[in-house]
Every structure is written in structure tokens, then in C-alpha cells.
Design a protein around this nucleic acid. Sequence first.
DNA 1: TCAATATCGATATTTTTTTATCTATTATAG
DNA 2: CTATAATAGATAAAAAAATATCGATATTGA
Lengths: 214, 214
Amino acid sequence: MEFESPKMSRLPTIRRLPAYLRVLRQLQGEAWEHVSGTYLAEQLSLDPVQVRKDLTITGIVGTPRVGFMVDDTVAAIEAFLGWQNATEAFLVGVGNLGTALLGYAGFERHGLKIVAAFDADPAKIDVEIHGKPVYPLEKIADLAARLRVRMGILTVPEIAAQAVADRLVVAGITAIWNFTPVALKTPGGVVVQNEDLSCGLAVLSAKLRNADGS
Amino acid sequence: MEFESPKMSRLPTIRRLPAYLRVLRQLQGEAWEHVSGTYLAEQLSLDPVQVRKDLTITGIVGTPRVGFMVDDTVAAIEAFLGWQNATEAFLVGVGNLGTALLGYAGFERHGLKIVAAFDADPAKIDVEIHGKPVYPLEKIADLAARLRVRMGILTVPEIAAQAVADRLVVAGITAIWNFTPVALKTPGGVVVQNEDLSCGLAVLSAKLRNADGS
DNA sequence: TCAATATCGATATTTTTTTATCTATTATAG
DNA sequence: CTATAATAGATAAAAAAATATCGATATTGA
Ligand SMILES: NC(=O)c1ccc[n+]([C@@H]2O[C@H](COP(=O)([O-])OP(=O)(O)OC[C@H]3O[C@@H](n4cnc5c(N)ncnc54)[C@H](O)[C@@H]3O)[C@@H](O)[C@H]2O)c1
Ligand SMILES: NC(=O)c1ccc[n+]([C@@H]2O[C@H](COP(=O)([O-])OP(=O)(O)OC[C@H]3O[C@@H](n4cnc5c(N)ncnc54)[C@H](O)[C@@H]3O)[C@@H](O)[C@H]2O)c1
């Protein structure tokens, strides 16, 4: 007697969806009509059962002996992730990493459009970087309200991370993509996704040490 | 009747170690002698039991009513990850992202030292970027052998990713930190860590869609 | 038409990860 | 010296994820 919400987390599944999407789009380019879960699994070195199970989260259904309609599956994944029409975002901290992200065209394929950037350094403001305007941090609340932007990408130095995050929250930002290694404290209702590169490096280091260690 | 290997995967644990390390180093700076698992948990919004369990993977032991010796714990984590002395690495693809990574000083704190970069674009070679020399791709095998470098960081365009990875493997690279969204095919014995940003974006999108969707 | 086969989707099982509970230890206060 | 509270660490339980099994179904080719 338990009403299950349509998606009961399944974070690992969600993380794999972009990989499926990437293969599927390539198949679209090659004018495939159908694709089997088995094929997707081979391309991505995954288990076929896992692929089929993952795809069910999007609501897509396949047909036996045929597979999944490529176009429908792309649409289903995009709809599930909300990637049909781009979410507009701000980026704060136009340094090494921030500049790289501003220049990455791939985000547009992932339902993300960075509309403006912000920085504390006067030398960086009022210039366009990769076609994106850079404003002083003070303007963020006003612009967030005017443009109704709700996502912020955080690429400031560690030391400034929490303070800038607080500012984003005050400005009405409800989703923070956090590239700093800081564990941000945010009020409920704000979703934070941490993209700490050192996690991946730790895994690689551990594997490496294990590979030659024994 | 089962001999367990010293580390039986526990990937989520390994991914959390750098966060512990970061807090611990800050405490070192403030001259703390001990720290409780409870405190670490609070700082990182984790469960205290999980913190203690995670730390056991490094072999560190704490004392009741006191906690863990800060210095010893830092040493234990670094030893577990092999971060005491830096691993030397090559970076291939000095574009937006590659340049950002070359300029990131934080890697040195994570046992990683990028000693050289490579690119296919003649305009980029023979200049130093962030103090690192950039060579043509052709030199990679020779330099890898001479410098005994075994780790490669891959930041080339998707289209070139597999070919460059193959080249890295031929050159004797056994660990690839892959920032492209391509699922690389590599021979056994080569460890690959994928750092696909779109995974994190997918999670953020799903959370966001779920937060206002219902 | 019919057998063979590739495939999906449902169910079951196993493994991994997280969370909870309980016991023992130790510093500290009285 | 003893009681108390904070804490580690062991064990157990629960939850989540990955993997395996199996029946049903559609396509293909005999
Ligand atoms: N560069 C990388 O490859 C890399 C890799 C992993 C993690 N990171 C993390 O990303 C973050 C940024 O790294 P980076 O190398 O780009 O640093 P950076 O110093 O190159 O850039 C930081 C930028 O933020 C701006 N800034 C500083 N304080 C600010 C504030 N209060 N408000 C707004 N802007 C402010 C600075 O002017 C600068 O432009 C850091 O937290 C770092 O740990 C970077
Ligand atoms: N820029 C980002 O923020 C970002 C974000 C997510 C993922 N990525 C991924 O990182 C990779 C690089 O992205 P980028 O934005 O830095 O691209 P980029 O085009 O700016 O840089 C690519 C670099 O690789 C070099 N290159 C091309 N072919 C090569 C080859 N065969 N051998 C060696 N070098 C070669 C190019 O000369 C260029 O310098 C891509 O796979 C992209 O999907 C980038």
C-alpha cells in the first residue's frame, strides 16, 4: 500500500542516460530506425539487461525482436531530462575553468544555455568571453530576476564558493552546478550537483595503485 | 571460507576520500590534533557511521572519546590513494578544457603532476601553456618511454578520442583520465576513468525537473 | 505455414551500499 | 575513584543497484 513516485531516485540510471543519448543521436545521423538494447550495451560496454532497465525510466517501450525506435527513444530521454528546450544558466567565476565551460558548444545539445557570466575581477567585466557577456557580481540578483534564470554554474576559487553560493540563492537561483570541491550549505529547495574532479582522480589513483601494487 | 582482497571495490567510499582529505588539511592548518568522525560528517553533510566506515578502508584507527589523529589520517588517505608522491601525467588536447586543466594548481595537492602536453594543431606546439611545454602528438611515444609516464589526460574532440586513446596505449600509457564523452575501447590492463560532465548535468536536470515538475 | 532466433519486459537473485543498533573504550567532571 | 558522556568499531538490517532467469512476441527464412 505504497504509492511510488514516478522516479524513485535511480541516480546511476540517470547518469547513464546521456551516454545512451549520444549513441542514439549518432544512429539518427546514420538513419537507423530501430536499435536493440543489446547494441547500445555493446557500444557502451554495459550489460544489455541494464540498458533495457535504464530505458524504462523514460517510459519508452520497445518491441521484441526489433528493439527501440531511435527517434522515439531520443525524444523520451530528452523529455525525461527536460532537455528538449534549453535551460538558461549563469556562470560565476570566469577563470581557467569557467572560461573553458563558456566556450563549450556541447552544452546546447544538453539542454543548457549559458546566457551570462559574472566575476569579481574588474578586469574581466564588460568584455565578452566566447560570445557571452561578463558582468560584475553585483548585477546578478537583478539579472536573475529579469531573465528568470534559475541555474547557476559555480567556478570560483574555493575560498569564495560558499559566499557566492549564498548570493546565488538570494538571487533566486534554485539549481547550482558546483565545480568547486567545497561542500556547499544551501537551504532546502535548492538542488546542488557537485562536480568535484578529485573524486574521479581518486578512483583512477586507487585503480592504478591496485593495478601495479599487486 | 573466502579470502577477501584488501580492497573489495567500494568505489563510493573512494570517491569520498578527497573530501575528507580537504577538511582534514584545513584542520591541519588550524593545528587540530584530533577530529571525530562526527565532525567530519557535519562538515560534509554525511552520516557519521559512513565516515567511520569509509576511513577504515585506509587502515586508520581512531580512539573512543578522542577521534582520529588528524596528521595520521591525512597520511593514511594519501597513502591509500598513492598521493604522497606525485604521479606524472601527459595531457593531450590543449583546447578549452585542456588549457584549464593545465592551469589548475590544485592537482599538485592530489598527487598529480602534468609534465607535458600534446596537440595536433601546429599552431599550439612549441609554446608553453601555463608553464607546460606542448609537443606534437608524434613525440608522445618517445617521451612516454623516456620519462616513464603512465597516465594520460584526454581532452581532445570526441571525434579524435578513440584514435588518440589507442595512441596513448601504444605509447605505454596504462591509465587514462577521459574527459570526452566517448566510451573508449581499451585493452585489459589499461584503466580508464571517465569524467563525463553530461552525467552530472543529467542528474541536475532530473532533480530540477522533479523539483518544480511536481 | 512453421521453426528458429533475437529481443523485450517481468520477476527473481545476488551484490553492494547505506543506515541503524549495540558494545566497549576512554577522557573528564564530580 | 566513580559516573557520565562522547566516541570508535562491530554487527545487523534495510535499501539500492546490478545481474541473472524466463516466458512472451515478433521477424526471418526454410
Ligand atoms: N581549473 C581547473 O581545471 C579546475 C579543476 C578542478 C576544479 N577546479 C575548481 O574550479 C574553481 C575555479 O578554478 P579556476 O582554475 O578556474 O580558478 P581561477 O582562479 O582561474 O578562476 C576563478 C575566477 O573566479 C573569480 N572570482 C574570485 N572570487 C570571486 C567572487 N567572490 N565572485 C565572483 N568571481 C570571483 C576570479 O576573478 C577568477 O576569474 C576552483 O574552485 C577550483 O578548485 C578547477
Ligand atoms: N570545454 C569544455 O568545457 C568541455 C566540457 C565537457 C566536455 N568537454 C570535452 O572535452 C573535449 C575537449 O573539449 P574542448 O572544448 O577543450 O575542445 P577544443 O576544440 O577547444 O580543444 C580540442 C583540442 O584538441 C586538439 N586536437 C584535435 N584533434 C587532435 C588529435 N587528433 N590529437 C591531439 N590533439 C587534437 C585541438 O587542436 C584542440 O586544441 C571534448 O571531447 C569535449 O566533449 C569539454
